[in-house]
């Protein structure tokens, strides 16, 4: 059997933090997190704020090194330290990430087209003409218009920026796309557009999703599997529909019983989808 796309085993991450008096303290952001994501699959990472979702996502992306445990992409464990250009490029084509904050995700001095093109130039041999066409088709794929190509992020809305970030991530044709609250900052109508776009994207390109969200309604629309995190630990895992419809864990039940908390707004859409 071939190796799964992504396999995390017993991942642990501690941050060294200092309190006001300057005393060292360890903060366990993730502990004993294990999961597997098949090629072309989609896994949700849900949990309240501070539960360690972003930490896990960043470890998978290779932006953070785990304090313990292993993360294997296509059967290959990550090693830290300096890497060659070839390794850098190979890794880039394995995993890309869209970040939580749409306002910091783009270089304010780069136009949309330049941002995507820079990535293309790094990874493909095509000439300028090819790149320009590819940029146009990527922007179209994420639902941006031609006129956006020459604009700088300053002029774009949060939703548009998030789309640019998705287009940039897709430019390298990664096997795995990590979406860290990629739609959480958007208002409902824009959010629905982006979600539809993502679902369509996965259907057509076969890219796998690691979908981080605290919005359970959105998770149901985008992912097949689901991992519920609480204080850095996985409290429940399984097919998204099962977990959301028949939560076994008390925390998941509480999460579902919709006490509105900051950043977690239960939406009516959840009900609509489950009715359908």
């Amino acid at each position: 059997m071939s190796a799964p796309l992504l396999h995390a085993a017993d991942v642990r991450k501690t941050f060294v933090v200092r309190d006001e008096s300057g005393r060292r303290d360890e903060l366990v952001a993730a502990d004993g997190v294990s999961f597997t994501l098949a090629t072309g699959g989609s896994l949700a990472l849900v949990g309240e704020s501070g539960s360690g979702k972003t930490t896990i996502a960043r470890i998978v992306a290779g932006l953070e090194t785990p304090s313990g445990g292993t993360v294997e992409l296509l059967g290959e464990a990550r090693t830290g330290g300096r890497v060659s250009r070839a390794v850098r490029k190979r890794r880039a084509r394995q995993v890309q990430m869209v970040f939580q904050d749409p306002y910091g995700s783009l270089d304010p001095r780069q136009t949309v087209a330049a941002c995507v093109e820079e990535v293309l130039r790094e990874h493909f041999d095509g000439d300028r003409c090819w790149r320009r066409e590819r940029v146009a088709s990527l922007l179209q794929q994420v639902g941006l218009e031609e006129r956006h190509a020459d604009q700088r992020p300053r002029r774009l809305s949060g939703g548009q920026r998030q789309r640019v970030a998705i287009a940039r991530a897709l430019a390298v044709e990664p096997r795995l796309l990590i979406l860290d609250e990629a739609v959480s900052a958007l208002d409902v109508s824009v959010q629905a557009q982006v979600i539809n776009m993502l679902v369509e994207l996965r259907r057509t390109t076969g890219v796998a999703f690691l979908f981080v969200s605290h919005d359970l309604g959105v998770v149901r629309q985008v992912t097949e599997d689901c991992l519920v995190m609480h204080r850095g630990r996985v409290v429940e895992a399984g097919p998204t529909a099962d977990v959301l419809d028949h939560p076994a864990d008390a925390y998941t039940q509480r999460l579902l019983s919709a006490i509105p908390r900051p950043g977690w707004q239960p939406r009516r859409r959840t009900a609509e989808v489950s009715d359908a």
Partner: peptide, 14 residues
């Protein structure tokens, strides 16, 4: 510390 720098790194830029 901004994520666009992370994105550059992930894209494999030197």
């Amino acid at each position: 510390s901004l994520p666009y720098i992370d994105a550059c790194q992930l894209a494999g830029l030197s």
